[in-house]
Design a protein around this nucleic acid. Structure first.
Lengths: 193, 193
DNA sequence: TCATGAATAGTCAGAGTTGACTAGGAGGTG
DNA sequence: CACCTCCTAGTCAACTCTGACTATTCATGA
């Protein structure tokens, strides 16, 4: 019942998604994705891209579609999608949309151990965090405002903004309650001079 | 300027956080963490725990504190925190609380390629997702209601609930707008029979 | 009392990931 | 026209992680 995907890296999904339109070589895809800002949505380094192409080929989702060369540049291996690849793309997308998965954001880890820091310090740190969240919100809103694409293609940025706003609200609420908890909380830190 | 932590796995942070109270051996910590429900906050498998103990020891954050044995059970290696480990715990916690980091949830990847699916199908999938989110919310709320700990020690569950609610609101809003976008969106899928 | 299963304690192969490195071509500058 | 830097295209070693596996002991009950 453990049926796992042959390629688990979400970068593989992006590769399938681009190859559905036209055959590409890894380096060109790398430029396309950077230009399109896909590194905001999908973790992606230059090195892992070649890995993923190899994995997708081994799994039969893509095949070499010949090589091309431009000027005296090195030869480039162009890949095209297979039918199995097209099917995997659809199936994978369906799963990702329909099934929310319990994830592990870093802030959750920190919150679960927050009592390890003194409340006075936490107040300062959370204010810093609010500044950082504000910067991320500004960045995301600038992207929404500056893009001329249809909102359908910016929906992931809207989602990110929704989560950031929720986090801001949570942190503010947390800050308000720290005073009530201070007596108990500060007690854990008494032996520290 | 790239200063990286010697141990990057957040499970290492949890280990430091527990050892600050008392020396433990890996297996016992494993039980403690499961009993405390820490697997909801920190990704954590039995195997990786031994890895992380090894890494922390190599980095000088913990040291062997002798071995113990109970009955005829196998001998257990007990570890204790060092001063460097105590410092790392504080420093790491400060970073995690103060600096929000751009992360890559799976749903963001799916949203960034959502046009690859037909809008009629997306409507169905998103309703499934709402059901799943509802289940996760019920679970989290049951944990809040059933625990008798001080709210300070449940704050990570409150954060999770805040994010889940934000996602529910986002998905509902998305569903409402699909009709407006349908003409354009369905156009991408015309050539498919 | 003997089997069965659950808990204890840990190892390890294989898969995945990161980031640094190579190596030549194109473009710009003084 | 010599030099420098960025771009193109890809490889690879080292590190990390996952999950399956081993081997022993304790508890249960038929």
């Amino acid at each position: 019942m453990k049926s796992k995907r042959k390629v688990g890296n979400l970068l593989g999904l992006a590769v399938l998604g681009y190859l559905v339109r036209e055959p590409l070589h890894p380096y060109e895809l790398s430029r396309l994705m950077r230009a399109h800002g896909d590194d905001r949505s999908i973790k992606f380094t230059h090195g892992s891209l070649y890995m993923v192409f190899g994995q997708l080929a081994k799994a039969g989702f893509i095949v070499e579609h010949g090589t091309s060369r431009e000027g005296q540049r090195p030869e480039r291996t162009v890949y095209a999608l297979t039918d199995a690849g097209r099917a995997e793309l659809k199936d994978w997308m369906r799963e990702l949309v329909a099934e929310p998965v319990h994830e592990h954001p870093r802030f959750v880890a920190a919150l679960s151990m927050i009592a390890a820091l003194h409340p006075d310090e936490v107040v300062v740190l959370l204010r810093d965090r609010l500044d950082g969240l504000r910067r991320q919100l500004d960045e995301a809103e600038a992207i929404l405002a500056g893009a001329d694409a249809h909102p359908l293609f910016l929906v992931e940025e809207e989602y990110r903004i929704a989560l950031l706003n929720a986090e801001v609200a949570f942190v503010r609420h947390f800050l308000e309650r720290i005073d009530d908890w201070r007596p108990l909380w500060a007690g854990f830190h008494e032996e520290e001079r």
